[in-house]
Design a protein around this nucleic acid. Structure first.
Lengths: 347, 347
DNA sequence: ATGAAAGCGCTAACAT
DNA sequence: ATGTTAGCGCTTTCAT
């Protein structure tokens, strides 16, 4: 029934084949399909019929090549781990905002491996993405300096660029951590266990800095005795918390520096007779039901901001300076932080 | 200091420019940079120097065009909403497995809008992705039939293809729901409230089917009186549950058909004097700590399976038949389901 | 309203 | 070991 058409053979039909089948030139077929320029109604119809018959689909790769890199609609996102709700919500906010402007998101996970990040960045750049959003795990970003010259917009999220001037959307980690620490100190805690992620990460160090400011202002100098770093997953965090609580004297309060660590801490604390007070950085999915006090913020909002900065670089007035947007956090007190130290003030 | 090089002007340097600067032909420059074929050590060095000086980066778009669609390393994922942990974990499992095979993931969210899905599918196909993984929100997929002929591998996830034969990775929704319903029935519940997502979705209907089998086998015929559908977000689910519990007689148990709905139910139940028994479909992030009984499964595993099917279509023996992998679920009993109906059996 | 020619940046095929 | 030619599929430019 169906005649053998030029498509058989695996390769896709090209515009030239559509043109041949409808008896017009390639350019006319192109016009008929894209709707640009003048094409006779009858011709247009014939071309569309031919295209349908062949299962024609324009080749975006060829189009991009011809039109030049500035025409690409692909925006790359490089982040640590899509399975982490922080990143996935960031990606969601970013994607939505981009789509409303005709851009598409392509994501890649580094799993906090600097080498992979470098490699993925290269791949995306070679693929001529229109712009790049990066939650970087690298210590420096000099290698990207050359790209800016070629007009590729960058936006750093969650972690700032180092050795490179570029737009960024960051959290006010320091103020958030300070506020949390102050709250615990005000409740009389003097031994506050702190569990953090990879110590080389900016967010970790920034949060530690805020914490330090608050506790040192309260005259606590031995805080580092209760600090455990490099707990990168839930299981490691759970172990770290158990270890901290097994010491003598044990901390009377806990500050967990991100969502995974807080989750690990909650597991470690389950069934504990006299659990320490707890505040976690990042909101948890069911944090309200569990009564977990947190330093909260909105990852999707961060994604939307990243999109805005990026769109402004692409389409807005070419403002040269690198803008840093700092999103504030909010201390949300629920039950978990309201357990006073066992022996009262100074205990 | 730095001389004006051919790059100035915004456009990126091309291979030809690198070749010109190093005094060789384009092909030699290509060989030197890609490492294929024979190039004199001295020449290679000269070419690399020129490339570095110009900030050259190979144009992947041109390379893809030249090498043909089959050389692309991009795999598209179309899903409902990246912010939903189910999808983001699926994406994570998929991405990891793909990367290990030199492929890259490009994601797009439909927000359960069939029209957007169609549009996004077209865009990705035009971009000549190597393969497509789809958690489809559409009722039929005839429009993709033509693509298969052109050799584009498809893998459907979570929801099966309709009107098209293609690989798929699915959950055993029916068995999972049946098991949950049986458990509640065995505990003496006769009025079980069910809250579901969009009623047109396959997963919803499959889960309802399983539930129905179990309750009808127990002689319960009025189950539909306690069914509320189309609760697509947490807030809608919370309202639905409140509404269900406000009726007289109220259900003594609740079966929530996905993670968002379970979350909404938990919010509605907070502080409730005599909460109904509860089982939710999908694991929750802190479900163990909250004691929520669930029908559990592993979204990342689903992603990995999708990758495997896809890789097999790409590189394995061309097995023609459409394979359907069905992943089983597990009923995880925690506290929330162990509240007997108030008035004993038959209550 | 339509067409011919050129070229985007790269590489396969065929020289030398 | 290196160069030449051609062409991937499209669109831009300039005819007609």
């Amino acid at each position: 029934m169906t005649a053998d058409l030029p498509t058989s053979g695996g390769g896709r039909p090209s515009l030239a084949q559509v043109a041949a089948l409808s008896g017009v030139s390639a350019k006319t077929a192109s016009r008929a399909l894209s709707g640009e320029g003048y094409v006779a109604a009858r011709t247009r119809r014939r071309v569309h019929e031919a295209a349908d018959r062949l299962g024609y689909r324009p080749n975006g790769v060829a189009r991009d090549l011809r039109r030049g890199a500035r025409a690409s609609t692909l925006v790359g996102l490089i982040s640590g781990d899509l399975a982490n709700p922080f990143y996935s919500r960031l990606a969601s906010g970013l994607e939505r905002e981009l789509r409303m402007n005709g851009l598409q998101l392509i994501t890649a996970s580094t799993e906090e491996n600097p080498e992979w990040e470098r490699q993925l960045t290269d791949t995306l750049l070679e693929r001529r993405v229109r712009a790049l959003v990066i939650a970087s795990t690298m210590a420096r970003h000099d290698h990207l300096a050359g790209e800016r010259i070629h007009g590729i917009p960058f936006v750093f999220v969650d972690r700032p660029p180092a050795g490179l001037s570029a737009d960024a959307v960051l959290l006010d980690n320091r103020a958030g951590a300070r506020q949390a620490a102050r709250h615990l100190v005000a409740a009389g805690h003097r031994r506050i266990g702190v569990v953090g992620d990879l110590s080389r990460l900016f967010t970790h160090r920034d949060r530690i800095a805020g914490f330090t400011e608050a506790v040192e202002a309260a005259g606590i100098t031995d805080w580092a005795d209760h600090l455990l770093e490099d707990a990168h997953d839930v299981a490691a965090a759970e172990r770290a918390v158990r270890h901290l609580l097994g010491r003598t004297p044990a901390p009377t309060a806990l500050f967990t520096l991100n969502n995974r660590i807080t989750t690990g801490a909650l597991r470690a604390l389950r069934g504990h007779a006299a659990p320490p007070a707890l505040i976690g950085f990042d909101e948890l999915d069911l944090g309200d039901l569990l009564g977990v006090s947190v330093v909260t913020h909105d990852p999707e909002e961060m994604g939307r901001w990243a999109a805005r900065l990026l769109l402004d670089q692409l389409f807005g007035d070419a403002c040269e300076s690198a803008r840093h947007v700092v999103l504030s956090t909010r201390l949300l007190i629920r039950d978990s932080s309201e357990r006073p130290p066992p022996h009262g003030i100074g205990g």
